[in-house]
């Protein structure tokens, strides 16, 4: 509101001169983009959701104390394979005072160290899948938003619980490989940076 009044006052008092200092602007330039056809998008969307569900199952195993160390390590390696190199996870709390950012590997290691007897991850029935946009290098990128309830318990008692919104980057790239003289045309779906924020619920 203050903004509006200040700007109005400002604009009234302004003398407009030609050749004002400016910022390079191309007003309203529109970029046409090659997009996937809708059917392909639906398939790729569901593939992306599958990867996210796999990740959440891996997290359940990694965070569970009864998982042997070697098994947890194996699953961490599997979970890391889901991610593009250099992916990070940012965790913010409601007060927003601090946003912690971890390398995805560090995040899994911390999860392993937490050692809950049991980790329960519940999914909300609502998720949101953005449109896939083409990047300059020809990949596609999208963001999937999911809501999860996390419960960690020790000695049958609930010790930690939260409800978070997770915005997960998805990279999709069409790749080709040759296997025994046969062309395999496949979609490489990788997860990227993640933002985890506590919700009001």
């Amino acid at each position: 509101m203050a903004y509006r009044i200040l700007f109005c006052l400002f604009i009234c008092g302004l003398i407009i001169v030609d050749g004002m200092p400016g910022i390079a602007q191309g007003a309203g330039e529109y970029f046409e983009e090659e997009t996937m056809d809708p059917d392909q998008k639906i398939k790729v969307d569901s593939m992306a959701m599958e990867k996210i569900r796999d990740l959440s199952k891996y997290i359940g195993i990694i965070g569970n104390k009864s998982t042997p160390f070697s098994e947890a390590n194996r699953v961490v390696a599997r979970a890391l394979e889901l991610f593009a190199d250099g992916s990070v996870i940012g965790v913010s709390t409601l007060d927003k005072k601090e946003v912690k950012q971890y390398e995805i590997k560090t995040y899994f290691e911390r999860l392993m160290a937490l050692s809950y007897d049991k980790v329960k991850i519940e999914w909300f029935d609502i998720q949101y899948i953005s449109d896939l946009e083409q990047t300059p290098d020809g990949k596609y990128v999208g963001v999937v938003t999911i809501y999860q309830k996390f419960e960690g318990s020790q000695n049958d008692a609930l010790v930690y619980k939260d409800v978070t919104k997770k915005d997960i980057t998805i990279y999709v790239e069409r790749k080709m490989m040759q296997v025994e003289g046969m062309d395999i045309d496949f979609w490489d779906v990788l997860l990227g940076d993640i933002v985890v924020s506590e919700t009001m619920l």
Binding site: F124, D125, I126, Y128, S130, D131, V143, K165, T199
Partner: peptide, 23 residues
Amino acid sequence: GVTYDEGNEFILAETKQVNQFFR
């Protein structure tokens, strides 16, 4: 045929991404 937990109607209504704002 899906049962939502209490509070889910807020998530459903929330404009969850800028992408959703556009759409």
